[in-house]
Amino acid sequence: MANIKGIALPLLLAFSVVHFPIAESAWLIHYHIHVRNDLPLINTPPGRPNLFLHCKSKDKDVGDRPMAIGQDYTWDTMINLLQTTLFFCNARWTGRKRITFNAFEAMRDETRCMKYRNSCMWSVRRDGIYFSGDNSTWKNEYPW
């Protein structure tokens, strides 16, 4: 029995390294998620919210936030060992549209969000939710 216990732990550790290809120390990195309200000013007085955003994961609710044009909603996260970290947001453009989008997926965003200071940048616009990993190139990933 003693020999089996002595072998089991190294085998378990070897198995976990082989099957979870997370980048070395990636689970120690803080990722910064930013969602900015870049919607046009339509039937909303300046400074008043025209976007309502609620973001959360299975384990953490980062809150419901009314956002005026130009405001930024931010939070930090780290990737868990199983690479299952996922934050999603429900966005509601007052009187117009609603959408749910994944603001952070560990497997998808581990590499692409490291280009700009470990940040995942999102912009809510008239035609959808745009992503940028470098804060200069934007792609509409979630059309309304």
Rank of each mutant, 00 (worst) to 15 (best):
G133S: 03
W144K: 00
K58C: 03
T44I: 11
A91V: 12
A14H: 03
S16F: 09
N80P: 15
F20R: 06
C113A: 10
R98W: 08
F87I: 04
L12C: 01
W93R: 10
R117W: 08
R112D: 09
N50D: 10
W93G: 03
K60E: 11
V17H: 02
Y31D: 01
Y31V: 05
K60L: 06
P40Y: 04
G95M: 10
L51T: 04
D134L: 10
N37P: 01
T111N: 15
I29C: 05
N140H: 04
D61R: 05
A103V: 15
R126G: 07
T74V: 07
I22W: 05
F20L: 08
I33G: 06
G63M: 01
I7R: 06
N37A: 05
P45W: 10
I129Q: 03
A26F: 15
D72R: 04
T74E: 15
Q83T: 14
K60R: 06
D61K: 04
K97N: 10
N102E: 12
K58E: 11
G128L: 08
S16G: 04
T85W: 06
N50G: 00
D134N: 14
Y130E: 00
P45N: 10
L53E: 11
I79N: 09
P143R: 01
F104C: 05
D59F: 13
W144S: 01
P40F: 08
S119W: 08
L82H: 11
E110S: 13
P66E: 15
P21D: 09
S16K: 13
C55V: 07
K5A: 11
S119T: 15
H30S: 13
G63I: 03
P46A: 09
T111M: 14
N135F: 13
N37F: 06
M114D: 03
G133C: 10
R36K: 14
T74A: 07
D59A: 05
I42F: 10
R48K: 15
L12R: 06
V17D: 11
L13T: 03
A8F: 11
G133F: 09
D38I: 02
F20K: 05
L11P: 02
P10Y: 02
F52D: 06
